[in-house]
C-alpha cells in the first residue's frame, strides 16, 4: 500500500502476502503430489487460481460453501493428502469455526487453513470482509498453529513450513501490497520470532504488516534518542516465549502491534507470556473492540490506530511507566 506519511523505508518494493502463498503452492504442487488446494469461489482473490491453472486435477473449487470446504479438506487429509483451504479470513474462521474446531482441530487433522484479506487494510469492502478476530479465534483452538507473515517472502516460507509439518495450521494473508522487508536470507522457523532491530529502551513486538510500521517507528524513535528493539513475531501460536521474555528482561517495557482486535489477539498472547514470568509495563497497538468500515487502506490504518505514529505514542506512554 502507498504510504502517505514520512517513510524512511519508501524505497522498498511491495507485494501482497497472498502472492507468497501461491508462490509456495506452486513450488509444493511441483514437489509434493499430496498437496491439494481448495477454494470457495475466490480463487482469483486468494491467488489460488495460479495453482488451479497449473494443477487443475489437484484444485477443488467447493463453491460458496466454506463449511463444506473444511469438511472436504478433512476427508482429503484422512486419505494422506495435504489440503490447503483458501478463502477470506472472515468466512474461513468465523463461518466455518465449528468445522475447524471439531472436524479439524479436535481430530488433529493435517489441514492447512488460510485466511486471506486479514486486517483493516482490506479497505473498501468494509467490516464484513475485514478479518479482525481471526488470529485470536484460531489461537484458542488446541493443536492449532497460527502464523501471520509480515511480507510476501515470509508468507511463502510460512506456507512451505506448514506443508512440512503435521497437524492443523492457520495462516493469515493480506489483500494489499505491503513493503518487502525480508529476503531469502532472513531465517524462518515456525515458533521462532525474529529480531529486526536491536535496542535496549523498549521492545516493539509486532506481527504481520505491523512489523513494517514498527520499523518506521524505530527510525522515528531513534531520532528522539529512544532505542527500540523490533521483533517480528510471525508465529502467534506457539509463541516464542524465550525471545519475548529476553526482550522484556532486557528492555523493561513492551509495546505490541497488530492489525487485529487487541482483545484476545496477539497483544493478549504476548501479555499472557510476560505477566507470568516477567511483568513489565505494556501498551497494545491494534484495533480496540470495534468493527471496521469502508475506506482506503491508508485511511483505515490511520483511523483505526495501526500506524507507526500510534506505536510511537504507545512507546512514549509505556516509557513513562517503566521503572
Amino acid at each position: 500500500m502507498a504510504t502517505a506519511h514520512k517513510d524512511v523505508l519508501s524505497k522498498l518494493d511491495g507485494k501482497a502476502t497472498r502472492f507468497g502463498y501461491s508462490d509456495a503452492l506452486l513450488m509444493l504442487g511441483r514437489d509434493d503430489p499430496r498437496v491439494f488446494v481448495l477454494d470457495a469461489d475466490l480463487a482469483k482473490s486468494t491467488t489460488t487460481e495460479r495453482f488451479k491453472n497449473e494443477f487443475p486435477e489437484r484444485f477443488i473449487d467447493c463453491g460458496i460453501a466454506e463449511q463444506d470446504m473444511v469438511g472436504i479438506a478433512a476427508g482429503l487429509s484422512l486419505m494422506g493428502k495435504v489440503p490447503f483451504t483458501s478463502t477470506y479470513g472472515t468466512f474461513m474462521v468465523d463461518r466455518a469455526l465449528d468445522q475447524i474446531r471439531v472436524t479439524v482441530a479436535y481430530a488433529e487433522l493435517n489441514v492447512k487453513i488460510m485466511g486471506a484479506h486479514g486486517g483493516i487494510s482490506v479497505g473498501p469492502d468494509g467490516a464484513t470482509h475485514q478479518a479482525l478476530e481471526d488470529l485470536g479465534v484460531m489461537r484458542m483452538l488446541p493443536h492449532m498453529t497460527v502464523i501471520n507473515p509480515c511480507d510476501v517472502n515470509e508468507a511463502r516460507k510460512a506456507t512451505l513450513a506448514v506443508a512440512a509439518m503435521q497437524g492443523p495450521t492457520f495462516i493469515r494473508l493480506g489483500r494489499e501490497s505491503v513493503p518487502i522487508i525480508t529476503d531469502d536470507t532472513t531465517p524462518f522457523a515456525i515458533g521462532k520470532g525474529i529480531t529486526f532491530e536491536d535496542g535496549d529502551d523498549v521492545t516493539i513486538a509486532a506481527t504481520g504488516y505491523m512489523v513494517y510500521e514498527a520499523l518506521l517507528a524505530h527510525e522515528e524513535l531513534a531520532k528522539q534518542g529512544i532505542h527500540a528493539r523490533v521483533l517480528d513475531i510471525h508465529t502467534i501460536k506457539p509463541i516464542d516465549r524465550e525471545l519475548l521474555l529476553k526482550a522484556a528482561r532486557e528492555t523493561g517495557a513492551v509495546v505490541t502491534a497488530e492489525e487485529h482486535q487487541v482483545m484476545g489477539g496477539f497483544g493478549s498472547a504476548v501479555a499472557e507470556v510476560l505477566v507470568q514470568e516477567c511483568p513489565v509495563p505494556m501498551e497494545f497497538v491494534g484495533i480496540h473492540d470495534r468493527f471496521g468500515e469502508s475506506g482506503t487502506p491508508d485511511e483505515l490504518l490511520t483511523a483505526f490506530g495501526c500506524r507507526h505514529t500510534d506505536i510511537e505514542a504507545a512507546v512514549n506512554r509505556v516509557l513513562r511507566r517503566k521503572k
Binding site: 469438511g71 472436504i72 476427508g75 465449528d98 472436524t103
Partner: peptide, 25 residues
C-alpha cells in the same frame, strides 16, 4: 473411529473429501 464427530452436519462433507481422494488415487 475414523474421525471426530458430534457436532451435527459435518460428517458428510468429510466423506465427500475422502471419496474424492480415493477416486483420485
Amino acid at each position: 473411529v475414523e474421525t471426530s464427530t458430534g457436532s451435527l452436519g459435518q460428517g458428510l462433507s468429510v466423506a465427500v473429501g475422502c471419496a474424492y481422494a480415493a477416486r483420485y488415487d
